[in-house]
Structure formats: C-alpha cells, structure tokens
Design a protein around this nucleic acid. Structure first.
Lengths: 246, 246
DNA sequence: CGCTGCGTTGAATCCTATCAACGCTCGTGG
DNA sequence: CCACGAGCGTTGATAGGATTCAACGCAGCG
C-alpha cells in the first residue's frame, strides 16, 4: 500500500504531515523536501492496539503518517501510564538514538499508517550530500519530545486534574496546528476517556467529571471525537501554559 | 579552585566521579580517561540554591563534580516541580543538545563543585583524534537521562506516595552505585523532605508520614542525611523497579 | 538569646479513587 | 430483523488518600 493512495487527490491542500512538521522546525531546501517525500512512500497500516515497537528491543524507526499512537509503560499489576502521544508527522523510536533499546512500548491508539524511516535516516546522515535542514529538523524533533516529557512531569506532579486536562488539550492544539489539523480552534481527537486517564494519572470516572466541569465552565468541549476550544487565553492562563520554545 | 584540591589525597580510592560514570557506560581507552581528567580540572563551586543554568537560555554545559543539584520548573503561583536530580559525574545542560535553549532551570541543592564541560565536548567531537568511547559514553548519559524522565512520569502518574518514595530511593541507590558512593546499601542523601516532596508531587507533611511508615515497615530508613536500605528486594518488588537497561 | 530551617504531629477538609450500575451505540450472528 | 454483547460514556454512593492549616520541638547559628 502506498501512502499517496490514501491521500486526497488535492495534494496542494493536504500536505504530507512529516513535511509540514519538519519544514516548521527548520528551513528546508526544495531537494530536502523531495527527499522527505520520496523516502516515506512505502507505507503500511496497523490496527488499533497494535504494538508499533516494543520495550527493550532495538527497533526499526518509523514515520507516523496518519492516526494516533502513544508510548506507554505498564506496571506489574496492570496499571498503565501513557508517557507521550504520537501524532502524524512524528517519528516513532527515538529519532537520534536508534541504536539503543527502547524504554517504552509504542502502541496504536487508532488505525495507523506508518512508513519505514530508515531510508530517510540514511539519506540524512549517510555518505551522500549533506542535508543541514533535515538534520536540524530531526534534532529539533527530538528536542521537542524531550520538552514534552518535562511538561508532562510538571502536569502529573504539580497540577490538579482540571489543570492537567486543560494543559493537555493545549498541547494537542499546538501540535496539531503544526501539521495543519486545526481549523477555527477545532480539531479531531480520537481518544477515549480511558486513554486520557492513563495519560494524566487519573481514573476514568474522574476524567469524565472533570470534562463535564470544563464544559460547564465553557473552556472547551469534547464530544464525539471533536474538540472545540472556546476560551484559549483563559485556558492558557489557568493551566500555566508556556508556548513551545526554540 | 581546582578540583583536585578538594579531593582526598588518596586518589586511588576516590576516583573522579565523571571518570567512573563514563567508564561504566562504555569502554574507554587510557588516553580517553586522561582526556576526561585533564579537561575537568578548572572547577569552581556554587552555594545552595544557586542557579547553575537558566530556563530559556543557551547555556554553558558543565560537569558536576561534587554535590547534588536538580532541574526544576516553577508554576505561576509558586508551585515547584523537580524534574530530575543531578549527581556527581552528571553533565548539566543537555550533553548532546547544547545549541538549544534549556526548558528547565538547574539549581544547586547542596554546595556544589562544577567544571566547564566545553573543553571536554570539543575534545570529543572537535577536529582532533576520534574518541569513540567518550562519544558513546556521552550518548548513553543522554539516553539514561531520557529513561529517568520516563520513570519519573510513571512514578508520578501511576504510583502511590509510598511506592514513589521507595522507587526514588532505588534510583538514587542505582545511580550512586555507579559512582562508588554506596557502601553496604548505605549512602548519603543531602536532601530535605521539601525537596523530595517537590520531586514526587506530594506535600511535605505527607512525605514525612510516608517515610515514617516505610521506616516502621523496615524497608529503609532515612535519618540525618543517611539512607540505609534494609530490604532491597522487597523494595524492588513493591515499587515495580526495573533495572536500568542498555 | 532569639531566630531560622527542618522535622514532626493533630485535626479537618478536599480531591480523587473505587465500586456498582445503567444507558447508549454499534457490529455481529442467529 | 431482532437479540445479544462489547465498548464507551455517565451517574451515585462511599471510602480513602493526600492536602491544608496550625502548632510544636529541636538543632544550629549569629
């Protein structure tokens, strides 16, 4: 299956998310953007819950082209903690550290389309022509992942349930904007409340009640997979949002 | 002030923590170990609470030679979250990403001795002879930091107060062992309960009560800056400890 | 001597989890 | 076609864990 097969025929409006992502992180030459497109054409899809890579293994890096995924860790008694979310345009499996075993498992949260990222990696730091823009963008993707993990630590450690939910929505908003998936402060969010609970360190019941409270407060609402932010600035103020740096 | 000035005269027993750390992560040649020692000789000390590097700035990477420090983030209303601890032998300021602004502040938790890490960095990836061992060790230090952050996310998100404290002690035990600072499962821990609270997302009062409970259960005790682990295997089982991989 | 930082304790409160049940939608199979 | 079950969201009642506020003891120190 090819990536382009599932795209709209109108390629001018629907750009490859990886290209959007990386072009937003560094200036890319025309050749570099071509390399991005050429090297992610061999795509394949995975069903919900499929493991995209496994803890403790040295894995094949992949590009996530469509759908949502996450990194997670499981405790012995079944408790789950979602460590980070993966959105279209993200690279699965430590972009800059592919030689070390993974310390977390990646699973698909929706149906997912991925592509082998190795040809892209080789094009970047192989023996061919130097690709400063791509190298820089890749570097910044890894950095952004780092920053997200720290944000997540602050959320879990020092924010209330209410603040956590609001803060995570702002993260989604910011990340989805980078790949052009936000329109009028609305975006699709294909996550169950259980997934949100496991990401934010809360119970499903409490996530549910918190979402209701947030809806009553008219900050945002989340229904049938669609999120609409109604008062972004208020959300940012109350959840102590800091815009992504770099 | 020079680093060697504050060391014991018996250098055979008290090895430079950076050398111990990196030699434990990769095979180093004799020349590489010499380079480590030579390039961290210009040390200076900072008092408690001193900012070692500041959020949002591109900073000078430093080697922590003695004392404890941490990365932290502050919320608007004063709440603090400690993101990671820095122990002797650690590098302050993203070993592999020194060109990007920091997304967290580093402060000294005790009196601290640091050295400029730039000469070391230049020796590693400068134009001189290739240092495969040092490059590999540096790489693994960055990776270890990554893994710790994920561990921290799991602690904060899905573990109880009791488990969090035990798990963090096991982390300290493991890290201090790597620099030879553990003897008979005893080690010095120069942290106040307030610092532990801000790291583990708990209140000081609750940390205090949890430590008492742990002491009553004879898992470990922590008094006057000294920690003694009494039942390591039980601790590992109950806190879902996974040994550091890689 | 009094102050400050740190650890400790008690009481009350609040946030969040747990348990249980119910409704709804949707896909499947009889 | 309808019955059935699974998955997901929702609700109520109850319990429990963690916070807050307050106060006190104690050691170190100027």
């Amino acid at each position: 299956m090819s990536w382009s097969a599932i795209r709209s025929s109108d390629t001018s409006r629907f750009e490859n998310p990886l290209v959007m992502r990386m072009a937003g992180l560094a200036d890319l030459s025309a050749e570099e953007m071509d390399i991005l497109r050429e090297n992610v054409s061999l795509a394949h899809s995975s069903a919900i819950q499929a493991e995209l890579c496994t803890e403790g293994k040295v894995q094949m890096p992949q590009v996530l082209l469509a759908g949502w995924a996450c990194y997670q860790r499981l405790l012995g008694d079944g408790r789950r903690q979602i460590v980070d979310f993966l959105l279209p345009g993200d690279i699965i499996g430590s972009p800059t550290r592919s030689d070390l075993p993974l310390s977390r498992t990646a699973i698909a949260l929706t149906q997912v389309v991925t592509a082998d990222a190795r040809p892209l990696m080789q094009a970047i730091d192989g023996s061919g022509p130097v690709m400063p823009g791509l190298a820089r963008a890749l570097h910044r993707m890894a950095y952004a992942e780092d920053v997200r993990q720290r944000d997540h630590i602050v959320r879990l450690g020092r924010q209330t349930a209410y603040e956590r939910v609001v803060h995570l929505m702002l993260e989604f908003h910011s990340r989805l904007q980078q790949i052009g998936a936000v329109h009028d402060d609305r975006f699709a969010l294909p996550l169950t409340q259980e997934v949100l609970a496991d990401a934010l360190g809360l119970s499903v019941v409490h996530i549910n009640r918190t979402l209701q409270q947030i809806r009553r407060d008219r900050l945002f609402d989340m229904r049938s997979g669609q999120v609409t932010l109604r008062q972004i600035e208020l959300m940012r103020a109350m959840a102590d949002w800091t815009p992504p740096i770099g």
